[in-house]
Amino acid sequence: MILGERLQSKAVLWPFEYLGGELIKVSTTLSRFFDYLSEMLITLMTPPFRFKEFVTQLYLIGYKSTPVILFSISFAATATILEYAFHMKLVIQTAALVPGFAALLVFRELGPVITAFLLTSKVGAGMNAELGTMQITEQVDALKLLSVDPMRYLVVPRFVATILSSVVIVIFADATCLFFEMVMSVRHLDYSWEGFLTAMNQFTQFKDFYLGLVKAAVFGAVIPTIACFYGFNTQPGAEGVGRSTTQSVVSNAVSIIIMDFILTYLFSYLY
């Protein structure tokens, strides 16, 4: 009877205990994250800046990631223009608006967002696993013992290099997308090269392009910040590194989607 009552009260309390526990976990993680973020921003704004590490990261993040991103995004661009053409022909019986809409989508969404997702999986996951392994094998402690600030040596160069790389890759990604959309339009929608560009110019403005670059810079800042945070908080063991990488990729993906919504909403006031 007593056992039954205990089990009953446990069953009643369980959801509250669970929710309370989760709430404490989330608030602790957020508090740690904001401490880390403020430390990173202070370090970013104070000298010295580790230029050599920045150049290394620029090579690893920017140069090494560009081919795979451009390759992947070209398929996304061609799929988009085919979808647009199909639906516009179905609904308004013409493909005349396709280049304009497709270019708008490339500049404002497709270019920065797909690039950010690809950077998250290629660069963010790699950064997280690298820092996580350094953390659990005491390499981060060894850096501190050699009077090197891990924030300045590991995080800040990656942060600045990812922002710069993201912006440059998005410029190339936009150009690649437009090129493949143009090819698709000429081959399948009976457009001429000039006709595509003229139709595109009617709909797009220069600010569509640079607001896309602002998004690229913001996503470029989000990716290393989250990846390095989870890297520094990696628990020992292969499972710990795996869990940390998963958390980092998922948090980055969710943050990019939320930031995309916020920026799109803010930019809507500029039109």
Partner: peptide, 12 residues
């Protein structure tokens, strides 16, 4: 830390 060196459990 310039006065203290530490050898870790892992080679690090």
């Amino acid at each position: 830390r310039k006065m203290c060196g530490m050898v870790f459990q892992h080679p690090a």
